[in-house]
Design a protein around this nucleic acid. Structure first.
Lengths: 208, 208, 208, 208
DNA sequence: GATGAATGAGGATTCATTCAT
DNA sequence: AATGAATGAATCCTCATTCAT
């Protein structure tokens, strides 16, 4: 708990790191300023030299936590853009999950926001999720040669993968309790990622 | 907001209903006793005539919210138990989602618990999720004739469907912001349910 | 300080009494909730069972403190309405001051507000002071036969008396330090009141 | 608001000017160090290079704000010392008010202190107000030939004029709300000053 | 002189809970 | 079964002040 949260970094960064971890684990109202400052090793008033209030700190954590995810997913989609049909699907899914795994707080924060539908939801949806979906849909339009799906379910395709992938990462605590192993550890994670990639393959296998 | 939460029901039931809705929307620490009693139309001390404290009320809400889900999913699985191969998969998925839709607070509560990994998580995992997974795995063992999957990914199959289905229902607020329509309304919901059922079908289509 | 503030009265009244005294002596921002609740003999949270917040408590104190002043002055003006010329002026002044003396917190609160020009000033001016001035002006119009003053200085007449009378009562702490006697005690107060009444008489003495 | 408070002056003077204005408008406890430094355009710690703490800054503001008033009033009294009877009264009153008008924060600060009776009151009373009163009384003794007043009400005379004159200037915010015009603007101020001078004349008009 | 970072003390207010009625 | 009044603990945040730079 009181891990000094990377003692070398400037205080502002340490606050962001501690806040990200705590907000992701306990939600906004479940995390107190004191929780965060205790984790950083400062007193509560010191936090206000770096952030004007809890809300703004949270907004910054949210943005900082989602930005790399979207950027990386975007880059992965770029890479897969010209790729041939079926192989593309499983590779995108696999890469996407690997990226989520490296930034597991983002999915948790996003799903907490998505469920509780708090104040930031509209902005998140507009700025992060909608572009992500649109990006995915356009990739599908160019690459799906399976003949299985009409264009108007492409958003559902992306949405389902979004729920599955973000859900797996965000729900790692539940996964651990259910399966007695850390869902983000190498082997279980690989198994799940590969399974999801295989479902993707099956989904875009040309219809007989 | 201040809907008197079914004026005819006994107070205890009205508290449970209001608490379920609020806990699902704002989480445990984001919901105050006053929020609940305001929704019911009583004063905070009156709540303590029916529940010993907030924690126990929450535990009861959680159980009451998850029990029907598990029971109904269980029943759906029973019905599909003897069903033939491929048709079974999409029917189970479709029925399961219809059931979730009727009790949308359950998925939200479960995912909030699953993310924040709070005190109830171990019990929930043991009592509700593990049996659900095991039930699904055994159904798969009896019915999967696709030749696509080895038995040790069956848990991943169920887990992925769990994330997708519970995620879609729990994240309806996010869905609404992203797609400008209520993901639980008839037509969008049917589209997503049918798409997921189709993916199930594709996943269990016998391999060529 | 910790006088129990009239132990018999209901808590709400005791809070109002303590708050009036403290706000009048130390101003709004110089008075803490704890100051008030200490004077009443309760803990700070108990105050919130009776008033929603400090601002509203202050507003209520202000209204409760000014209302009797205005009402009584109004009544005094009524009584003097039909009175003959000169005698009226000194009697109104004398009676008005006697009334202020009985409610000395009102002038203090009003002058603090009037100086700091805080949020309530506009409302106070409109609801309390303007009617008071207008009332005084109309009395002057009917009764001033001195031939000394044009009608357009009547507001200045009232304003000057307002400053003098409210000032004397509000500034009793300063008066005490300057003159080494309590300006609200019987004898010094009577001397000042009678002097002011005499000035009023001189001011409305028919011009030679 | 964020007027840089006379950019050319040395920081110390700019702090004094900003502090005077803010203390006069919001009182001691209603003004924070940050309010002052914001108005000056520096950060709070910089203030401590010029003043040891808030209390001492306030004391200096108070002295600096009252000193010119007293000096100027004193000078005005000197000038009127040899002046003949009746004309003197109105001239002193008129000149005194003109002086107050040029330093309107002094009256506000003084009345706030006089009402709240804070720590500085005794010193202020002794050092500033008492000499002022005594000076006025001695002028009256030498000049009052009206035969209207016994010598023991002379202090009341001065006190009443003090309340009226300081009150009018300090309460300019209230005046503005009540009369819809700035009480310190040329025309309204002149009207009030002349009225007060006229009352002075009437008060010292030889009795018939 | 000025500032960024820090802090102890205290600010108003909320919260879960109790208890007498 | 319900409530008004009360409270200890905790909430977010502000404040005056310090100190190293």
């Amino acid at each position: 708990m009181a891990e000094p949260e990377d003692r070398d970094l400037p205080t502002r960064e340490r606050i962001l790191a501690a806040a990200e971890r705590l907000f992701a684990r306990r939600g906004f109202s479940g995390t107190s300023i004191r929780d965060i400052t205790d984790a950083v090793g400062i007193k509560p008033p010191a936090l206000y030299n770096h952030f004007p209030n809890k809300e703004d700190l949270y907004a910054e954590v949210l943005a900082a936590s989602l930005r790399p995810l979207i950027e990386l997913i975007d880059a992965a989609a770029d890479a897969a853009d010209g790729a041939p049909n079926i192989e593309g699907a499983d590779q995108i899914v696999g890469r996407g999950m690997d990226l989520l795994r490296e930034h597991p707080h983002g999915p948790a924060l996003l799903m907490l926001e998505g469920i509780t539908g708090a104040d930031h939801l509209a902005r998140i949806a507009r700025d992060w999720i909608r572009p992500l979906i649109e990006r995915g849909v356009s990739v599908l339009k160019e690459n799906d040669a399976s003949g299985r799906w009409s264009e108007d379910v492409y958003p559902n395709v992306i949405w389902m993968w979004f729920c599955s992938a973000f859900g797996h990462v965000a729900l790692s605590a539940l996964y651990a309790e259910v399966f007695d192993e850390d869902g983000l550890a190498d082997s279980p994670f690989a198994r799940h990622r590969d399974f999801m990639a295989a479902v993707a393959t099956a989904s875009f296998e040309p219809k007989r």
